[in-house]
Nucleic acid binder design. Structure first.
Length: 114
DNA sequence: TTTTTGACTTGGT
DNA sequence: AACCAAGCCAAAA
């Protein structure tokens, strides 16, 4: 089942490392999760993420720092709201460069326990 | 097994 | 900066 898929688990745990108030791109998450070239799989994994894990899916956006959902859609509005609650404001559907997550690799690898 | 489908990315205009 | 075409790759059909 999807909730036990090892690819998905890796993705969820990686997304869990994004601190509040910061954002990362799908491709970045894929890379950090050890799944280069699988940005699209990240989106799918987030859609299947069990809510008990409380995966901060809203902190993941496209490489150009825009939301992945159509502007005005319910999901987009929800994501926007969640981000603003964390202090991440969107200018014209884009977040500021300062809000990009720049993880410390050593620390990240330690937390993910590869 | 083959084709289609994306919560994507990149490079060229 | 905005748009488009190709490339991408696991999943679902």
């Amino acid at each position: 089942m999807t909730t036990t898929n090892p690819y998905y688990a890796r993705i969820w745990h990686t997304v869990l490392q994004i601190p509040a108030g910061k954002v990362a791109s799908y491709g970045q998450i894929a890379d950090l999760a050890g799944l280069p070239g699988r940005a699209r799989l990240v989106g799918k994994a987030l859609g299947y993420a069990p809510k008990e894990l409380a995966v901060p899916w809203h902190r993941v956006l496209r490489s150009d720092r825009s939301l992945a959902f159509p502007t005005g859609s319910d999901s987009a509005k929800c994501q926007r709201q969640l981000l603003q609650d964390e202090g991440v404001l969107l200018k014209n559907n884009r977040v500021r460069k300062d809000d990009l997550w720049q993880p410390d690799l050593a620390e990240l690898l330690f937390k993910l326990k590869y």
